[in-house]
Design a protein around this nucleic acid. Structure first.
Length: 606
DNA sequence: AGAAATATGAAGCCGTCC
DNA sequence: GGACGGCTTCATATTTCT
């Protein structure tokens, strides 16, 4: 597969040999969802329907399922003929663009209310009159319950915004009245702490119920380090390498294995078999979701993540197949995996191509072609000074073996590059930006310190890798998407979609760090985004009421994306590698909670 | 006070060898 | 199979500097 970096415009990329429009079984476009309640959504990988295969009788329902009115579809078919579904689609999109201008005006006024942190304005909007359906989703249950318990709180970080249950007995009583067992309630309180709100407690119980439903052996709300014991059990040990498989593999049907090579369902630069997978029914959207975290997490972590995220196999990919730096990550998503395409031009994939100025000083005995994972900290000046002295002490041109070994160990550990004779240095911020696929100076200025730039970048997506996975959205959502971006960081998902040419209609971004929010906001304005960016600080305070308010106003989410904190999973953490129950990494459960809420809300009949 | 600099291993994978 | 060694890892705590 020859991917020359000749094309500048991603619109022109065509990975298909046939030039026919391939229409995935797609979700109902968000903007038309409100007017088309019975649009059945399904995610069918490899189930692309070729335009030429559609008979006339199938054409109409096909486009109707995409959210277009039947009359318009019939008219468009009449104008373009049955054989050219691409022209039909274009005609339909033109019609819809004209029709939607009024709706957009209404949506924008409500979005302004959200941005102004004014819930009351939202509550008075007509969309709020929709009846709340009470199905069997426990999330809905507690949302309705909350309506009776507390007033709607404001969007900002208000100390009193979330009901806090003071007395333990009071909380237990509440939860018992909600239908939970005393055991569930007390475990949740122990786990969530004495100051936990009803939201947090019910979220935790809901998550635990989901996990137990999926796995009868799910431990009863594990203690601090539940998996360590399992590791000592021989049955958890891994078998010998079984050779390459493009899917994640299991050992004894228990522990997830990492693929070797780590290319997931395929990468643009490697020849790999045509991927195929069948998603569990519970994973099918809407919305599409995309979750990311470090691949090399403590044992058992990915099994738990998989169980919560509807039993979808994680896709493990190393970004070294996309750029000059390694980044081993796991992605759990329900996106189609056929007909992906990469951002062009393809980034340089060797150190010397990415950093050509280092080529002159690079000794032959440093055989690295790829950098290791870009992390949040850089090597110190003291270290590079020690290395320089060790190198200069060498009498010959070529340093002694033990010196080479010492230097190379430090180079690999700290991602040092050659910037002069015997001179090694850590990467500059803008070099990290480039390697990760961000625009130059993306994290520069606006009051951010150099230390924080490294930290924010080290915690980010590799844009090209994520864009490759998200590229399938481009044809499905030509009019753009509504996105819920959790743990947005410096906006890796937003940048990836923008580079792909997927219009961002409404982006709800949740990010704790103020400097990161400022970076995304700045990027949003500099790139002249036409849509709305709504940002929030605390993911734990994003509850069902708030989500429903937003979704009613923007028409639901097409994509829920996010990589939850890896602090307690990453191997670099020498102090608190506590696993998924760690202080920061347990926010994964909020990703699941919110995704599940969005699924529930979108599944409601309107 | 905030930014910058610095020191601080272990978990767990993989390949090799016997 | 298992012992062994090589290798990699979205970081934290503390001290020093400005």
């Amino acid at each position: 597969m020859d991917q020359n970096a000749s094309g500048e415009d991603s619109d022109n990329i065509d990975w298909d040999t046939e030039d026919e429009l391939e229409i995935q079984n797609s979700f109902v476009p968000s903007s038309s969802r409100l007017t088309n309640p019975d649009g059945e959504a399904s995610v069918g990988d490899g189930e692309a329907i070729s335009g030429t295969d559609l008979s006339h009788s199938k054409l109409i329902p096909h486009f109707v399922r995409m959210g277009f009115p039947e009359e318009l579809v019939a008219k468009a078919i009449e104008e373009n003929g049955e054989g050219n579904s691409e022209s039909i689609l274009e005609t339909l999109l033109t019609y819809s663009a004209l029709e939607n201008s009024d709706l957009q005006a209404i949506e924008n006024s409500d979005l302004q209310a959200i941005e102004n942190s004014d819930l009351h304005a939202l509550e008075n909007s007509p969309q709020q009159e929709q009846p709340v359906d009470s199905d069997h989703c426990s999330s809905d249950y507690y949302e309705n319950f909350m309506d009776d318990l507390s007033d709607s709180d404001s969007w900002c970080e208000d100390e009193e915004s979330t009901e806090s249950l003071s007395g333990k007995g009071k909380a237990l009583s509440f939860l018992k009245n909600m239908g939970y067992t005393m055991e569930e309630a007390s475990i949740a309180m122990e786990r969530c702490g004495p100051d936990a709100s009803v939201d947090e407690l019910t979220d935790f119980i809901c998550a635990a119920q989901m996990a137990r439903a999926a796995d009868p052996f799910f431990p009863e709300l594990p203690e601090q380090k539940p998996k360590r014991k399992l590791l000592e059990n021989g049955t958890w040990k891994r078998k010998k390498h079984r050779g390459y498989d493009n899917r994640t593999m299991f050992d004894d049907g228990e522990t997830l294995r990492l693929p070797n090579p780590m290319i997931g369902y395929g990468v643009p630069t490697e020849v790999c078999p045509t991927p195929h997978r069948i998603l569990p029914e519970a994973a099918m959207g809407p919305p599409y979701f995309y979750y990311e975290n470090v691949a090399l997490a403590p044992k058992g972590v990915w099994d738990t993540i998989k169980r919560f995220l509807y039993d979808v196999e994680p896709e493990f990919v190393d970004s070294k197949y996309f750029c000059a730096a390694a980044r081993k990550r796991g992605y759990v998503h329900n996106l189609p995996i056929n007909n992906r395409f990469p951002l062009l031009p393809l980034p340089p994939r060797t150190i010397k191509e990415a950093l050509p100025l280092t080529r002159r000083w690079w000794p032959a005995w440093d055989t690295r072609t790829k950098l290791n994972c870009l992390q949040t900290c850089i090597g110190s000046a003291k270290l590079t000074e020690r290395l320089r002295k060790a190198l200069e002490d060498s009498i010959d041109d070529e340093p002694a073996q033990h010196v080479q070994k010492y230097v190379m160990d430090e180079c690999r550990k700290w991602n040092l590059v050659w910037v002069g004779r015997n001179k090694l240095a850590p990467l500059e911020c803008d070099e990290v930006e480039m390697l990760l696929g961000f625009p130059r100076n993306h994290t520069r200025g606006g009051g951010i310190s150099r230390t924080d730039r490294y930290k924010s970048l080290g915690n980010s997506f590799q844009v090209d890798t994520v864009a490759y996975h998200l590229s399938v959205l481009k044809d499905m959502f030509p009019r753009g998407i509504n996105m819920l971006s959790l743990f947005s960081g410096i906006g890796g998902a937003e940048v990836a979609l923008h580079k792909l040419g997927v219009p961002l209609n409404n982006v709800v971004s949740v990010e704790k760090s103020e400097v990161n929010r400022n970076i995304v906001r700045g990027w949003w304005e500099q790139t002249n985004q036409k849509g709305k960016l709504i940002d929030f600080e605390d993911v734990t305070r994003l509850d069902g009421d708030r989500l429903e308010h937003i979704m009613n106003n923007i028409g639901g989410f097409d994509l829920v994306i996010g990589g939850s904190p890896c602090n307690n999973l990453a191997g670099s953490n020498r102090h608190h590698r506590d696993g998924l129950e760690g202080k920061e990494s347990s926010l994964f459960y909020d990703y699941f909670r919110i995704l599940d809420l969005v699924k529930c809300i979108m599944a409601k009949p309107l």
